[in-house]
């Protein structure tokens, strides 16, 4: 498994990266941690002529939590996400999800930006971002724009990221204090993509669910924002009937591929199980 040849570029600033992308054209790709792109290149399913490495673009790094607004640079690694106490307290679902991605070595290079921008339906963070209603800051030759995670994913490896654009950062409104969270993922083994996974965030008030977010991983061509499942929860006491209604709503939108993780019927079923378990866990954690 040997990749094709390419020329390598290491810009120091985002502007430089963007102008490289523009000048080198469509046979150029940006690389962050490389754990999605390099395996594709080794299979020669991707054969870029130019690789633009973002590792030294300082402005793409860093985690900031200020006034209820979380901003995470696209080049922040999963290991840095896990290690951030600030994030763990403001938005604990990020650590929970990051710990379920791949393995330690991959988390030490794999980035949050790469995970969300690459459009692989198997990646975990896209659904988490949809549950958090995060926004992606995209920078291109025309300047900067924001696209919300719920509108970003168009198909397998197809996103709203325009040609010549780079994901710069992720913005998340910190969930309310006392919220409950869970990322429930079933996989065959460490390092695998989800057979089915669900991200859930809940806010409770006097035993009643005031706000709910539900999103699903790897049970469709894109991450799936399960709005109907949310509706089934809001206003309920998260009793068994409401949980089952949410699970049913999630199953209704799941369209998983049939692969070594199991036939479609199993993965649809499991989607419901993951949603139900994530709701239960989030409920237990909600203060």
């Amino acid at each position: 498994m040997i990749p094709g040849a390419f020329d390598y570029h290491r810009p120091r600033t985002l502007d430089e990266a963007i102008s490289l992308l523009a000048s080198l054209g469509e046979e150029s790709r940006v690389v962050a941690g490389g754990h999605s792109l390099i395996p594709m290149m080794k299979l020669r399913m991707a054969v870029p002529e130019h690789l633009i490495d973002l590792r030294e673009v300082a402005e793409l790094r860093g985690i900031a939590v200020e006034g209820g607004q979380i901003t995470i640079g696209a080049m922040t690694t999963q290991q840095e996400v896990i290690g951030s106490e600030e994030l763990a307290s403001a938005c604990p679902i990020l650590r929970e999800a990051a710990l379920q991605i791949a393995d330690p070595q991959i988390r030490s290079l794999g980035t949050l930006g790469g995970n969300v921008a690459n459009g692989d339906p198997g990646n975990d963070m896209p659904a988490v971002m949809q549950a958090l209603d995060a926004a992606f800051v995209l920078r291109g030759p025309e300047g900067e724009r924001e696209v919300v995670a719920r509108a970003f994913y168009e198909g397998p490896f197809t996103t709203a990221l325009g040609e010549g654009e780079v994901l710069a950062a992720i913005r998340i409104a910190a969930p309310a204090a006392g919220h409950g969270w869970a990322y429930e993922k079933q996989k065959r083994k460490i390092g695998d993509y989800a057979t089915a996974a669900a991200a859930v965030l809940l806010e409770l008030e006097g035993g009643t669910c005031r706000k709910a977010s539900v999103a699903l991983t790897n049970v469709g061509d894109t991450p799936l924002h399960a709005a109907d499942a949310e509706a089934a929860l809001v206003g309920s006491s998260l009793d068994a009937a409401a949980v089952e209604a949410a699970a049913a709503a999630a199953r209704a939108i799941a369209e998983p591929a049939e692969d070594g993780r199991g036939p479609r019927a199993f993965r649809v079923h499991l989607t419901g199980v993951m949603v139900a378990r994530a709701i239960e866990a989030a409920k237990r954690r909600a203060g």
């Binding site: 990749p3 390598y8 290491r10 690389v31 490389g34 754990h35 390099i38 395996p39 080794k42 690789l51 490495d53 590792r55 290991q79 330690p104 070595q105 991959i106 030490s108 290079l109």
Partner: peptide
């Protein structure tokens, strides 16, 4: 200072 898998890293990146 990080564990990495050197089969999925170009020498250029490690420069």
């Amino acid at each position: 200072g990080k564990s990495v898998k050197s089969c999925t890293l170009f020498v250029a990146q490690a420069n």
